[in-house]
Structure formats: structure tokens, C-alpha cells
Design a protein around this nucleic acid. Structure first.
Lengths: 204, 204
DNA sequence: CGCATAGTTGACTACGCTCAACCCTGGTGG
DNA sequence: CCACCAGGGTTGAGCGTAGTCAACTATGCG
């Protein structure tokens, strides 16, 4: 996902890449602001949020280390949402025009970039698919099946706090907790401190 | 979205593009099948579905005319899901290798392609954002605000059947119907036969 | 040794789903 | 021209389940 940090970057671009440190709560860019760069989160957490009709804010997405941010910036004049750091964070800054021309001139880079975009689409589709499953425990089960690494069979590590996973699944922490115990009682999974093993067959 | 039908395509690619007609229920590709092409739906509806652990199928997405299909094919060896035509459909077929090399050799095409991918990401994010809104009427309201065309102020046309929109919103047709009448009673919208006008301010 | 945060459990509520009946429109054929 | 039918859309009643609020425990950190 962080292909753009590769040494294979054209020198001109590599020299133009800078970093930016954000304090907790600091703003990376505002909604409606003119787009100037594309970002990748190096450390911390950056939240994307939309200010809609005056009244409410809706969080769009939370980008974690290694994740790209605002790829739309490359093909749009203004940012469609705002980005603020949830905790102290550090992002890599790719100036828009330079990145665009680098992509034009370097087919390998462009291909990597496209591959990254396509993977992102795939991940979003999966998350959307999960939301169509109403029952919390079934949604969780499918999520777990997606999470298993091809190598480590039927093993899922929980490095992130549960509440984060709950948010990603569109559940409250309470419901997620209950869903976990339920799956455990039904014998579908077994839980140790930091990891979960699935009992049945893994995802196809 | 159908940028790839542009006349600006390299001749070699343009000649390689073919069409394929699908009967209702016919399979475009199977899950796990080796990837050979990328598609754009010309007419009809093509449903993407995943066969998971033996038991269930989950519909991934329903692609309508103008929408691309299986962009993942370009960067993956096998299709992660199956595609079947819900109704008689016609798709444009872009052979994988030819499209890839065309993208390499033609920066303009590559840029258009990337822009398409980015827009797709944006659309998926929006759909995901909507799902985080629990209350049906509020979810609907935000959906409507997204739908208003910049030009036609506060006007949304309902060309598609409501049940389709309900599915896109993750609601049942009944709930959507009730949400519509509720917004109408609250004075947020007014409905005529085929279009809806928002009362308050449009989306930011 | 507290304090803050995450996680768990319980009781209650609310809202969307399900199933069912009904209306309405458009299309088809007698 | 009307009868019929099919599909989408609208209501209604009841249920189930995830959300909410709350209290309590566990864990990690200063």
C-alpha cells in the first residue's frame, strides 16, 4: 500500500516529497480547500470528515499508518472533506502536480498507483458487503474470515482496540462484545488474549 | 465513467475491444477463474457475487450501464467474485494485457483511468458513510442531498425503481417508503411523480 | 496507588425487518 | 373497451435485534 515510498521513485519527485507533523486535533486540510497534495499516513490516525448542511459532521474514514489519503485531490480542484489528526500524526506529502507528472512519465509508478487504487476499491467493497449483513454475529464472522491470512490458517490478530473494529463493522462496542461471546459459545471461534482462531473452514 | 469508449483510444486497443451479449442468468465469469479482461456494462444489469464458505452467497455490487466491472482483474490473477447477468445484458470487453499495455503507453488514457478509479473510490466512500447513519429518514435525506445536481437546485429525479434505491441505501422498500412519507410530512421534501425537491439548503 | 480508558454485562427502548394485505399503474389479450 | 395480470409501491401489525444508558470490572499508565 505504501508503494509510493519506493526507492524507484523518479528523483525529481522523491526530492519534492516532504513530511508534515500534526498535533492532536490539528487540521491537515479543510473541506473546500484547494487541493495541493496527496498524502500517506506514516504514524498516527487521521480522520476524514464531511461537514454537511450546517448541522452535522460525518466521519468519512479513519486513515491509519500506510494508508493513502485524499487520492481524489489529484483529480479534483477542492477537497471534498476535511482531515484532522485524531492523535499526533505524521504524514508524507506528495505535491499534486509533481506526482501527476511523475505518474505520466513513469509507467511503472503509474501501474503501482493504479494497483493501489484498485485494492482500495476492493477493500471498500468488502466493507460495504459486510454492512449488508444485519445480524451482528454473522457480520463479525464474515469479517473474521476475510481477516485470516492465507498463511496463518484460521488465525486473526487483534492488534487494534475492539472499539475500532466495532466502528469499522458499523457496530457499537457493546454489540461487538456480545457477538464475540456468542460466537465463542457457539463454538465458531476460540479467543485468547490477542488473537482469535476460527473453528470451521476459512473463507473461499 | 465510460471514458474508455473514447475515440482517443490507441488503435491497437480499440480494435481489440469486443462486445459480449449475456442472456438473463448467464455467467460472465466465475469466482476464482483466471482473469482475462476488464468490462464495462453497456446495457442491462450485472450482479457481482461472492461464494463464501460453502454456505452462502453475498451480492457484492450490481453494475448498471456505464459502470465498470472487475477492475481488479487488471492486477490480480483470479476474479475474487462471480458475475452473472440479472437481465439480458451487453458488456464491453477490454482484454487485460492489451489494456494494461495501452495504459503504459498512453499517459492520457492512464490519467483518465486513474480518475475513474478515484471517482469510484469516492462513490464507495459515500455509500459507506451513508450506512453509518442509523435512522432511515436521515440516511435518505443525506442521500438526496448527495444526489442533487449542482445545476438543478434541490431537484432529484427518480428514474430507477425505488426498490433499487432501497437496496443501495441498505433499506427495505417498505422502510424507504415510510422514510419518504415521513420526510414529506416533516416538510423536508415535496414529491411529485418522478422527482423530489429538497426544502432546506442543499449539500455543501 | 489512583486515574483514565477499554471491555463486559444487564435492562430497556426503538427502529427497521418480516409478512401480509391492499392500491395503483401499465401492458396484454380477448 | 374492458378484464385480467404482474410489478412496484404503500400501509398495517408484530417481532427481533442492535442501540442506549448504566453500572461494574479489568488493564495500563503516571
Amino acid at each position: 500500500m505504501d508503494l509510493l515510498t519506493l526507492d524507484s521513485l523518479p528523483a525529481q519527485l522523491r526530492n519534492a516529497i516532504t513530511h508534515r507533523d500534526l498535533a492532536r486535533g490539528e487540521n491537515l486540510f479543510q473541506q473546500g480547500e484547494e487541493t495541493s497534495a496527496f498524502f500517506i499516513v506514516e504514524t498516527g490516525r487521521v480522520k476524514l470528515m464531511r461537514y454537511t448542511t450546517g448541522d452535522k459532521v460525518v466521519t468519512f474514514q479513519v486513515a491509519r499508518p500506510g494508508k493513502s489519503l485524499a487520492e481524489i485531490a489529484l483529480f479534483s480542484d477542492t477537497y471534498p472533506c476535511a482531515a484532522v489528526a485524531e492523535v499526533a500524526s505524521r504524514v508524507i506529502v506528495y505535491p499534486k502536480q509533481l506526482l501527476l507528472s511523475a505518474l505520466r512519465e513513469n509507467p511503472d509508478l503509474a501501474e503501482d498507483f493504479m494497483a493501489m487504487l484498485v485494492r482500495k476499491i476492493q477493500a471498500l467493497k468488502v466493507r460495504l458487503e459486510l454492512r449488508d449483513i444485519r445480524a451482528a454475529h454473522e457480520r463479525l464472522l464474515r469479517y473474521l474470515r476475510y481477516q485470516v491470512q492465507p498463511g496463518e490458517q484460521n488465525l486473526v490478530n487483534f492488534e487494534r482496540p475492539l472499539k475500532d473494529i466495532a466502528a469499522e463493522l458499523g457496530l457499537t462496542p457493546e454489540t461487538l462484545s456480545r457477538a464475540l461471546t456468542r460466537l465463542e459459545q457457539e463454538g465458531m471461534i476460540t479467543r485468547t488474549r490477542l488473537q482469535i482462531t476460527l473453528q470451521n473452514s476459512p473463507a473461499a
